[in-house]
Amino acid sequence: MKPFKTHRQQLAILRGRGLKINSGSKALRILESESYYAVINGYKDFFLLKDPTGKNILPETYITNATFEEIYELYSFDRDFRNTILEFILKFESSIKSKISYRFSEKYKEPHAYLILKNYTRVSAKLKDVLSLISTISNTISKNGKKKGSIAHYLDKHDGVPLWVLVNYLTIGNMQYFYSCLDNSLQNTIAKDFSISYKRDYGNVIHFTPDMLESTLKTVTFFRNVCAHEERLYNFKLHKPAPSAGIGSILSIHTHLLDKGNIFTVLAFLKLVLPKKEHQKMIKNINKLIHSYSSKFNSINFNDILLEMGLFTNWDQSL
């Protein structure tokens, strides 16, 4: 186990590795309020010397003129970026919950229909997923039925919890599995709901398939979790990106740009499931954020950070 280091000792180590610290007192205040591990270990990589293969030179050495303040600016930029896109991911989350609960309840009107096995897909390969989903829903009701809130109220007053109430207690990951466990008819109806909204906003008739919606749900779920858990976002990439060929065709974006599973990928996918005004607002807010941070880096090129995110030149025009 590494021995404990005071904040002053931590700064001394950084100086010894070639990192400039313009204001020791400000750096101390930052370390008192933010974790050294979160700030330095999380965001130092861009500022470290690399060997010809791209690996960090050991012992760690910072590039010329790299500063503690720049690392903190990247940390702050990443946090602000997470908050910016999380706002719109949550709007999609609300939308998919609303559509799934509405269409499922419209088709299956019996009490506790979401706990009945036959109301889901009959594909044998998905039986375990369906049983797991029903178990998750049952546990959610049981857990929250003992607390004050909507679930307890409906159990006490109405002997059951409507799905449109229950979905507020389910995660977007739960909803991803919920959608994948629906029969083909319901999946198509829900995907068509998004197609209709897209046509209304953009004037284009599209065939937004259940597979495309599943790809969107899978992608958004991963990025939503990164944002919610305050993990590093700017260089996050999906280990196994969801299929994007159909989505690329609709958006007129080459699949090689979408198959990287980076931030550009999720921004593109969100265009299909957010109202036009919301997606445009998200792009505008991102551009404002980029502009506000673009002049805060001297030892590195801020455009290299944007490229790491998948935000190439004129990326916003592509969307």
Rank of each mutant, 00 (worst) to 15 (best):
K2V: 09
F4M: 01
Q10P: 03
A12K: 04
I13A: 12
G18D: 03
G24P: 14
Y37K: 11
D45N: 12
P52Q: 10
T53A: 14
I57N: 04
L58W: 07
I63R: 07
A66H: 12
E73F: 01
R79Y: 03
D80W: 04
I96P: 09
S98H: 10
R103F: 14
F104P: 00
E106T: 09
Y108A: 07
K128N: 15
L131Q: 08
S132H: 05
I134K: 05
N139K: 10
N139A: 07
T140F: 03
N144D: 06
G145K: 09
G149T: 04
D156R: 06
V167T: 10
N174L: 02
M175I: 15
Y179R: 03
C181I: 03
C181T: 09
Q187C: 14
Y198E: 07
D201M: 05
P210S: 09
K218L: 14
T219Q: 02
N225G: 04
V226C: 02
R232W: 10
Y234V: 05
L238N: 11
K240L: 14
S249M: 14
D259W: 04
K271T: 03
L272N: 06
P275Y: 04
P275S: 03
K284N: 12
I286C: 01
S295K: 00
F297D: 04
S299M: 05
I300F: 00
D304F: 02
W315C: 08
W315H: 03
